[in-house]
Design a protein around this nucleic acid. Structure first.
Lengths: 113, 113
DNA sequence: ATCATGGTTAGCCATACGTCTAACTATACC
DNA sequence: GGTATAGTTAGACGTATGGCTAACCATGAT
């Protein structure tokens, strides 16, 4: 029941935007400065900065400034809660289906007696 | 590079709300009518209906009406694109890290000659 | 036929989101 | 010092989101 987890909401929200996913994919190849990230998007710098802020607040990227260039890098571990939530959901369905299996099995056994 | 996929955006967006995740968790235990889903949320029916519409448009649930009651059920397969995207991202990081490994290995080999 | 129940539609409202421009700061380079 | 480069801040703007009320079907029960 990790549903009210604000982290999870922030994560999913951060991932819900194509521009942000694009940035993450780009960063998966390795760290990059802000301007390099902005280029492919066709968006203005301040807009990209906002996207980066969303990603950083979600913990999906980390940034550090060296001189006048800010380098951004993906934080793979940050994806874990998402994966975990998906796994939890799956476990719930499967639990249910197992119980349904048992139920059907019992029915069949009773019938065959 | 499945980033511009509108399905993915709709999925992530649908999952970004605690109320909607709560509904999914509830549905993972088995199908339920709208009112049963609304109860725990403390929200008004029209509000819940909107959440259900978002979930259905994302393909995460399916609904069908029998008499005057609409039954909602989770659609496990709909989660796959999310999982797939996560896996793709992971593959990218790992590819990068592998190449980095190779690079370091080569460096070390060259040094030791 | 009447009434209660379960759901639906329409519309309002405040806030959040994604985008932009314009103006500003800070660092590198000549 | 002067200029180009990289990023930042502030504010505006239209649209989307999440919530509500009120009124409206549709169906099952009496």
């Amino acid at each position: 029941m990790a549903n009210h987890d604000p982290d999870l909401s922030r994560l999913f929200h951060a991932l819900a935007d194509p521009t942000r996913r694009g940035i993450l994919t780009r960063l998966a190849e390795g760290p990059a400065p802000v301007t390099a990230l902005a280029g492919p998007t066709g968006l203005r710098l301040p807009t990209v900065m906002r996207h980066l802020a969303v990603l950083e607040e979600a913990g999906l990227i980390a940034t550090s400034k060296d001189g006048r260039v800010r380098s951004c890098a993906v934080v793979p571990a940050a994806f874990e809660p998402v994966r975990t939530w998906l796994d939890e959901q799956r476990a719930l369905w499967e639990g249910r289906l197992d119980r349904l299996d048992d139920y059907v099995m019992n029915l069949m056994k009773e019938r065959s007696q």
